[in-house]
Design a protein around this nucleic acid. Structure first.
Lengths: 184, 184
DNA sequence: GGACCCATGTAAATAGTTACATGATTGC
DNA sequence: GCAATCATGTAACTATTTACATGGGTCC
């Protein structure tokens, strides 16, 4: 489970509240671990119990009180350990490919429509990756080396989605040409 | 949730027991929806309750009795509906990228080791995709069109993993050259 | 008055993994 | 004797999503 460590990682940059973290998870386009606020609040509670973070309650006059969490030494060690141990390949659960596996009952046009919808969503996602919003996020890095690392992540996303898009476009073309009729 | 539909899809090919299904999920390399037997048995029970499948108990003398499930008309309709409605883009949970996001505390060599381990696993996975085992699985298709569709799925897997591998190899090279020191 | 931001959480449902449990047969 | 294949399932736990719940402040 990476969520625990993802939170520790953010807290290693600077102290944050559950609300702040939720926004970071939501807004960070290149961040590969979606999480909702309910999950984050629960995980923060666990992290606090196992003493990987400390909590400070900040009273605010204008806004509701906030609980700001900071990483502890123990937390930093735990994070560093996790970061340096290789993980298994991510499990791919790719709904469209499941659909395709059982799509022989559909018309060519319906399959093309599926692939078109997929391609369109990929194009939108790629547009996000090329937006200014993302460049802005990259600028939060503190060193050249860190911004290089974040660039790697960004690059991975772009290449992954471009690769999927090329595949989808080629598949659509093949379907339009009905290549399986001419293949030997 | 695609598991329900993935099971319906297999049962649309031919009647199968929970045990058979488990093997198909486990063995099918290009199948993008991992599932364990406990999940499959549970889901079969639900599918039976909602009358999308029927169940027949086959007594066997040599082996334990088996329960063979068949798809119903209602099941076929449900499957067809699901197969033709576009899904959202799959959520990516990519542990290595989370590690990379917080790896600024690691030495270059440690980051390279992470990427190397990743690349090595990708090479193994790709070897599977190029193995005879997989070609055998493709041969179960019933029509040229179906084998074309399965080929698309296979192609997607190969391209995805090759794309990741190229990315990892380039990243390793950049780290070795310490490019961020020379970038402007 | 309504929507949106701030800020916290819990509850319930669904999905997925891992471990526990049983028992016959076949092959080394 | 031991591992593997056949065949079923439950239990417990972990992870994730969606819905429920509250309440002040700001902006239009």
């Amino acid at each position: 489970m990476s969520l625990k460590y993802a939170i520790l990682g953010f807290l290693d940059l600077f102290p944050l509240s559950g609300y702040d973290l939720t926004k970071m998870f939501d807004d960070s386009i290149m961040f590969y671990w979606p999480a909702t606020h309910s999950q984050i609040y629960r995980t923060l509670k666990e992290l606090h119990k196992s003493e990987l973070v400390t909590r400070e309650i900040i009273e605010q006059s204008e806004n509701p009180d906030k609980k700001v969490y900071s990483i502890t030494e123990k937390g930093k060690e735990t994070l560093k350990e996790w970061v340096s141990a290789p993980l298994d390949l991510p499990t791919l659960r790719h709904g469209l490919l499941v659909q395709l596996a059982f799509a022989s009952r559909l018309e060519d046009l319906q399959i093309i429509a599926l692939l078109e919808a997929f391609a369109e969503k990929l194009r939108e996602r790629l547009a996000l990756y090329h937006s200014d919003e993302l460049k802005e996020q990259l600028s939060y890095s503190r060193t050249k080396r860190e911004s290089f690392l974040w660039g790697l992540i960004l690059e991975n996303g772009i290449q992954t989605y471009e690769c999927e898009l090329r595949w989808a476009e080629a598949a659509i073309q093949d379907l339009e040409k009905q290549v399986w009729k001419t293949e030997d």
